[in-house]
Design a protein around this nucleic acid. Structure first.
Lengths: 190, 190
DNA sequence: CTGTAATTTCAGAAATTTCTGAAAGTTCAG
DNA sequence: CTGAACTTTCAGAAATTTCTGAAATTACAG
């Protein structure tokens, strides 16, 4: 490894965190390296940068492509594959959310749906049934929200985030304003 | 293992998913079992239910306690430790979000802050610096939103979720209504 | 105290995941 | 075609994580 100290520290940290995240160390490191590189890198540059085997790089890049976290590029007059991380951090964030949902949420949702189809026979199963149903309800509510919000463009998403919990105040405010409007004009319309 | 088929399926699925989540299979299974049990279970009941070693149960319960996902109870005239999962799924959701944040986000945030303190020396480092700064900005924005929202009670949180992206429409609506109010009364006030 | 019922610890066995080197596959210029 | 430049595959080595049984520890009733 022969990287600037800051870059090296970032890459190593991402490798460590990778494990806490369910992606492995190498995958995390490669992603981090691509993320901070001003230009696309080819596999051998990654091998040099991280000091790992060529085959490991190949497999890890494959995984990153499956996650849609990395873009394959070709330079003119060069047969090699080059890779970059997408520019827009918000886009990366969305992609990550999307992929994690596919892998971590959807399978559970479908198992829950399946299990909820069967009628509970015993007292015990009946209790379990209501618990599964609660969990299903929660996950569905959260993913519906997510489906709804993910369609927003970055600017609106940022507005929504910066608003935070104030939206509930806004709700109250809306009601107040609307009712004032009504009182004044007698033609109120929500 | 001698559980009702539905319960068994749920427990096994949760075990599998556990691995995709960074908690291990046993921990996932124990949590699932407690979640669907109408009454607190003691360690030996879990051993019977899941067919795993007593010591594994002990260690896994320890981990679940560290995650705040399990509650230790004592029954009168019984020296054994009994465990349940919290009732309220929303509370569980919050706990999970909180713990994942502590483990998966905060360390990265602090590393990023640290690295951003140093001045970039080369062109390369300078590029990396802006990328780190972008990532830092995004994470901070998202966690600030989260900090803000997590204080809401369950009801308000549910409202906010069911509203989804409509909040942005609401924002527009507010502006419109306020301006109508102004036009009508000449005393508009946001 | 003593003995019993419980929990915890921990060394190392078992299982799983990650990583490597060697071989095979692909692509393309000449 | 041929062979050079590159990428992928994959068996098994290495590393890591999980799990177990045995021993140690704790708690407490008698």
């Amino acid at each position: 490894m022969n990287l600037a100290p800051t870059i090296q520290a970032f890459v190593l940290h991402f490798g460590e965190m990778g494990s806490r995240w369910g992606i492995n160390r190498t995958v995390g490191q490669i992603y981090a390296l691509l993320y901070v590189s001003p230009k696309p890198l080819c596999a051998d540059e990654i091998v040099d940068g991280l000091g790992i085997s060529r085959s490991n790089v190949s497999m890890s890049l494959r995984e990153l492509q499956a996650w849609n976290l990395v873009i394959l590029k070709h330079l003119p007059n060069d047969r090699r594959d080059f890779f970059t991380a997408p520019e827009d951090v918000w886009q990366i964030f969305r992609t990550l959310a999307e992929e994690r949902r596919k892998r971590e949420i959807d399978p559970t949702l479908s198992v829950l749906r399946e299990l909820l189809m069967t009628d509970p026979k015993t007292e015990e199963e009946s209790f379990a049934h209501t618990r599964l149903s609660q969990m299903h309800g929660l996950i569905e509510q959260v993913t519906n929200w997510y489906d709804d919000v993910k369609r927003l463009d970055t600017e609106r998403l940022a507005t929504l985030l910066s608003l935070g919990s104030k939206v509930t105040k806004l709700l109250d405010a809306k009601d107040r304003i609307v009712s004032i409007g009504r009182r004044r004009s007698q033609t109120g319309k929500s």
